[in-house]
């Protein structure tokens, strides 16, 4: 987004990733780079492998072949400490997955205490800051199930950000929300992008992708069909498949 002329540092690199579930070949030799400090949006029809690629990035799924580098380190190499790696990579899910037995502030503070080993009061102080930052001051002690979907998703974002990740993954973060709640979540994601967070965002919000993304990746049938700057992708798609997809969704 900054338009600096220096070659962008690569934050995440996928090298010839393949993944199948049983007989279904979900990712076929996928290679891509996610530049640092920039938002990369992944678009494509449902079932094209977008979630699976995202979930490979923090090894929620393990690719059968290929390598994934995060900040230069091969995370698919044997003996890599997955848990350490995951602290650097935050993830936000379509269905929030807030811990249902915990309050809002406990949701945000839990990993700070158990993973970062902060004392409880310090963890909760940091959590309170994150909760205020996503506009939910005063909701700290509510049960997560008492919040609207939009509020829950904002808490999920705060929970991920509290760990101070270098990269944020979003898997259709607004797809499960009522239309009137989408804007609030997208606004937080936009602020985060403009603040220089490295983000990999699977989304159906084409306006968001066009406005916020520095790079757009179009996937279909487990392959990356086309990659480029948003203006080029949306205004001058090169492949018939992307053209067809955009006609369907725009």
């Amino acid at each position: 987004m900054t338009g600096s002329s220096a070659p962008a540092e690569i934050s995440v690199r996928f090298e010839n990733i393949s993944k199948s579930f049983g007989h279904v070949h979900v990712l076929k030799d996928v290679s891509a780079s996610v530049p640092r400090g920039m938002t990369t949006c992944i678009i494509g029809p449902s079932g094209s492998g977008k979630s699976t690629l995202l979930r490979c990035t923090n090894l929620l799924e393990r690719p059968e072949r290929g390598k994934i580098f995060i900040e230069g380190n091969d995370i698919t190499a044997p003996g890599v400490d997955i848990d350490k790696l995951r602290v650097r990579v935050g993830m936000v899910f379509q269905h929030f997955h807030l811990f249902s037995h915990l309050s809002v502030i406990e949701n945000v503070a839990l990993a700070l205490q158990k993973v970062r080993k902060l004392p409880k009061d310090e963890a909760e102080a940091r959590a309170a800051v994150q909760i205020a930052a996503i506009g939910l001051k005063g909701f700290e002690h509510r049960r997560s199930s008492d919040l609207s979907g939009g509020q829950q998703q904002r808490v999920a974002i705060a929970r991920a950000l509290a760990m101070e990740p270098h990269v944020m993954l979003f898997d259709e973060a607004t797809s499960a929300l009522d239309p009137e709640l989408v804007k609030g979540v997208l606004a937080i994601m936009r602020d985060l992008a403009f603040a220089g967070m490295t983000m990999l965002v699977v989304t159906h919000e084409m306006r968001f992708a066009r406005e916020v993304a520095g790079q757009v990746i179009f996937m279909d049938h487990g392959q990356i069909v086309e990659t480029g700057a948003p203006a080029q992708m949306f205004d001058a798609p090169q492949t018939p498949r992307l053209k067809y997809f955009l006609e369907q969704v725009l």
Partner: peptide
């Protein structure tokens, strides 16, 4: 829910921590 565990693991918790705290 599987997602609860995945959320915990994504935050860097070990399998054992996810078991214990979630």
């Amino acid at each position: 829910e599987r997602g609860q565990v995945e959320a915990a693991r994504t935050l860097g918790m070990t399998r054992w921590q996810a078991m214990l705290f979630v």
